[in-house]
Amino acid sequence: MAWTKWSYMDHWVTETPQGPQPPSFNRAYMDRYIKQLSALGFKGFDTFFFYLPMIEGMYGSVKAFEHFLQDNGFEKITGIFSAYPYATKYTAPHVPETHDRIVADCMATVRAVEGLSVENFIVMPSTTYFQVEPVTDEKIKIMADLWNRVGQMTLEHGMRTTCHFEFWGAIRTREQLDLFFRYTDPRYVYFFCDTAQHTIAGVDPLQMFRDYRDRCTGFHFKDTHTVDEHEAYRTPPDPELMAPNVTRWFYEMGTEGGLVDFPALMREIVTSGYDGWLTVEHDKAELGGGSYAEATCVAKWYIDNVLAEAQAEAEAQLEAGR
C-alpha cells in the first residue's frame, strides 16, 4: 500500500499584486495554497513557529486552521519548526545564560498548539557556525543541555523535540553529530533527518538514519547538487544565501544532478519499520526562476512513481524474508 503519511513543510511563495509573497499574504491566498497541496494528496502540514500568530489572525485560531486542513483532506498539523539561526545576546543555544529565555519561547510556541496533536517540535539545535566557532565539546554539551530541557518540556505537552541540522550550523560533521546525540537524553531529544543539509555537510543521511533509527522522528525530503567543499558553511553573516559560489543549495526530488539517493533511503525506511511522517520541503525553490507549485508537483510525481516503486521493492523483500 502506498505511503500515505506525506506532509509538506511550509516555505511556499506565490505571485501577488505586491510581488512574490508567502501565502500568508492574506486568507484567500492561504486557502488556495492549502487546496493546491490537498490536490496533490498531502496529509500532513508542517509550519514555522512564526506563522502561528498569522494563522490565528487569518483563521481565528490554529485549531480552526487545522479544521480547514481537515476539510481539505489533511489529517492534521504534523510539525512546528522553531529556530534561533542567528545568535543574539538574548538567544544563543551555546550560551547557557540565554537558555531560560529559549525555554520560555519554546513554551509559548507549545501553548500556541496546545490541544492539537502536533507530533514534532523541530528545532535547529545551534546558530550559524561562524557565531559559535571554535566549536568545542563543551559548547556541544551546553547545547545538548538546552535541548534536553526543552525536550522534557515538550514531551509533557505531547510533542517530541527533534533536531534538524543545518550544513551551516555548529553541529554539522558526523563527529559533532555523534557527540551531540551522546550528550542528549534519548528520552527527550530526537533526530530529524534533512537529506539535503547532511549531504551538503558531507554526511551521509542514509547512514545517519541507520545509526539513529531509534531516535528518528521525521525527514525533510529535499535534494542538493553541491557538497560544501570550500568552507562555505563559515560565510558570515549567512551561508545559506550568501555562499560565494553557490546561489542555490536546495532542489526538489528528481532533478538532474541531485546527490541524494532517495530510493535507497525509502527502501531503508521501509525495511527499518519506521512508520512516521515523511515530509517534503522546498526551501527557496523560486531561485533561478523556479516555482513552488511546480516543484511540489514534480516532487509528488517522484513520490508516486519512483519512491512508490522503491517502497514496493522493499516490502516485497520483507515479505520474502518472512
Binding site: 501577488t16 505586491q18 500568508s24 499574504f25 492574506n26 486568507r27 484567500a28 498569522m54 489572525g57 487569518m58
Partner: peptide, 10 residues
C-alpha cells in the same frame, strides 16, 4: 490585523 486585512486585502 490591518497590515494584512487592509493593506493586503484580506
Amino acid at each position: 490585523g490591518a497590515e494584512t486585512t487592509m493593506l493586503r486585502g484580506g
